[in-house]
Amino acid sequence: MTSPPVLEVRGLKKHFPVPRSRGGGTVHAVDGVDVTIRAGEVLGLVGESGSGKSTVGKCVVRLLEPTGGTIALHGRDISHLSQRELRPMRRQVHMVFQDPYSSLDPRQSIGDIVAEPLRMHGGLGSRELGKKVESLLDKVGLATGMRYRYPHELSGGQRQRVGLARSLSLDPSLLIADEPVSALDVSVQASVLNLLMDLQEDLGFSCLFIAHDLATVELVCNRVAVLYLGRIVEEGTREEIFTSPKHPYTQSLLSAIAVPDPPLQRRRERIILTGDIPSPIDPPSGCTFHTRCPVADLPRCADEVPILRPIEASARQVSCHLVGADGTAPDAAKAAARI
């Protein structure tokens, strides 16, 4: 019997009621998500905006209380603990936020920001605290003198490093990174991502890496889960997902990555999905992707809800009627080209 995974999410659901004044109904932001992260693993959670990626992250750190399902941290169910009961568990998980401008308290010095988790979990004198803060700043590549600065004096990349230092100050076993670089310049993105990878290698924490940018996911993650309208449509190792995507949605996402080779880029078959992601208030019947799927097999795809099932006798999972148990998959690119 191996030790329980760092994070085990089963059937996670998060629904938001829509006020009656705005038409009523329920937003199915996350609708049955299973995620498992083992020690030292970096799982990428990708999807368009509105697919529920951030909601999953916020449920895991319990900024939101899930509507259904369970979230187990080191085998302990935290899905419905009160904020007070959660406090000891907060040593284990921390989060890097998307917006480096609003995630740092403008009135606190950098040192106070980084030290906050340490202070909340106590046990350090002010001298030790100062030392720890300086070593954390050093770890994320910032000058130790930065601790006396204020957030508005820092650049976006520096701020995100501060956010990283804060999230790692308690040596958590799990880090939730909610689009940590999408608000940064491309040149700065690379340095922050490299830092994140280096730290992950050194400290060995597990990571749920939420992103909409597949290139960063390919760089950082060991495993990838693709989210569409609050459900995982495909999950596998980085190699499996990026070299042979099975689900038509994954295929179309991957075809959107630009190849750094202009002639090749021009010749590539691109799958261009029409329309926006459907409303999570009233998701499509059957396979939620059938309304935009280039290879949809109607009426089956519109009637039957596909379940996430393993294929090719590996840990890989796909939720599509058209993918065979042996891994045979439709080619969305060809179908799109025919249209």
Binding site: V61, L63, Q83, R84, R87, R90, R91, V93, H94, M95, F97, Q98, D99, S102, S103, L104, D105, P106, R107, Q108, E116, P117, M120, H121, G163, R166
Partner: peptide, 25 residues
């Protein structure tokens, strides 16, 4: 604000969030 959420994730009790973060701002 995300820094209030960050404080919550850091394990700050309501008292600290109200007087330490929100009031100051």
């Amino acid at each position: 604000q995300e820094y209030v959420q960050a404080a919550l994730v850091s394990g700050a009790p309501a008292r600290v969030i109200m007087f330490g973060h929100i009031l100051r701002n």
